[in-house]
Design a protein around this nucleic acid. Structure first.
Length: 261
DNA sequence: ATGGTTGCATGGCAA
C-alpha cells in the first residue's frame, strides 16, 4: 500500500497537480493539508473520477483544512480539535485491517520563536504538548501519523542547522516538543528509516527564493511516522521533489511510503 | 540586516 502526504497549499488552485501526483505515484491513499477552503468547495467529483472514491474532508474558510482521499474503504472517521480550536488541523480514519491513519497540520508558529511575544508560537507549542499527551493512547495499535508537522527535527533536515537554530521550525524547544510526541507514541520516522543520517532530506522550499532548486535552502517539515506494530511493514519511502519544480507548485513536496499491509 | 512569494479574498493575514 502506498500512502502520500502533501501540503498542497490550496486544493482548488492545484487540482491539476494533485491529479498529476496521483498519476505519477499511483498512491492508494493521499493525505492533504492546507486545502484552504470549506468542505463544500472541495473538488470531490474530480477526485472521485480519478479513482479516489473514499473521501474524508475537513475544510474551513481560507485557512488550514485536511483531507484523506482513498482507493480503499475508510471507516471510523474522526476529527479532533486541538488546544480547544475548531481550526481543521486533524482528521483520522481506519484503513482495512483496522489500521489508524492520522492526518495532522501542526500550526506553523509565526515568526518570533518566543511564546511570550508570539501567540502563534505559544499555540504551536501547546498543540504539540497536547499531541504528546494523546500519543501514548493506543501506541501498541497499528497506526500511522502523517502530515505537515512544521518542525524539521534533525540538523540534516535543514539546509543550515546553525543558521536555523533561531528560526521557527528548527528551534530546540520545537525539536524537543516533537521528540516528546515521537517517544510518547513509540513512532518510527519512516523517511529516516529509509534515508538515515547524514543524508539531507527536505520537503519544503520557500517561495521567496529566487531559484529554490539552485539555492536548495530546504527544510523537512512533512513526515510519515509508523507505530511499532507497523514499523516492520516499511518497504520504501521517498520525497517527490519533482513536484516542487512544476509550474504553480506548492511550496511543499509530496512525501510517500510503501507498506506491506 | 533586510526582503524576498504565494493563496484567499479583495485588505490584510497566514505561511
Amino acid at each position: 500500500m502506498r500512502i502520500v502526504t502533501w501540503n498542497i497549499n490550496s486544493v482548488r488552485k492545484r487540482l491539476p497537480l494533485l491529479l498529476q501526483v496521483m498519476q505519477d505515484l499511483r498512491p492508494d491513499i493521499v493525505c492533504l493539508q492546507e486545502i484552504k477552503g470549506e468542505t463544500h468547495v472541495f473538488p470531490s467529483e474530480a477526485l472521485q473520477n480519478a479513482g479516489y472514491s473514499h473521501q474524508f474532508v475537513r475544510g474551513m474558510k481560507a485557512y488550514n483544512g485536511v483531507a484523506i482521499l482513498s482507493r480503499v474503504p475508510l471507516s471510523g472517521q474522526t476529527a479532533t480539535n486541538w488546544v480547544g480550536r475548531d481550526d481543521a488541523r486533524h482528521i483520522a480514519a481506519l484503513l482495512p485491517g483496522g489500521i489508524e491513519l492520522h492526518n495532522f497540520y501542526v500550526p506553523a508558529g509565526g515568526d518570533i520563536p518566543d511564546r511570550t511575544q508570539n501567540e502563534k508560537f505559544a499555540h504551536k507549542l501547546d498543540f504539540m504538548a497536547e499531541m504528546a499527551v494523546w500519543a501514548p493512547r493506543g501506541k501498541d495499535k497499528p497506526r500511522l501519523l502523517v502530515g505537515d508537522l512544521n518542525v524539521a527535527p534533525l540538523p540534516e533536515d535543514v539546509w543550515s542547522h546553525k543558521q536555523l537554530l533561531d528560526v521557527v521550525s528548527h528551534t530546540p524547544v520545537e525539536v524537543e516538543a516533537l521528540s516528546r510526541i515521537q517517544e510518547a507514541g513509540g513512532w518510527t520516522d519512516a523517511l529516516r528509516q529509509r534515508f538515515p543520517i547524514p543524508e539531507r532530506l527536505y520537503s519544503w522550499w520557500s517561495y521567496r527564493a529566487a531559484d529554490w532548486a539552485a539555492s536548495n535552502r530546504g527544510r523537512r517539515l512533512d513526515h510519515i511516522w509508523l507505530s511499532a506494530p507497523l514499523a516492520g511493514t516499511l518497504r520504501d519511502a521517498g520525497i517527490y521533489k519533482k513536484a516542487r519544480g512544476w509550474a504553480e507548485a506548492s511550496d511543499h513536496a509530496p512525501v510517500w511510503v510503501d507498506l506491506a499491509l
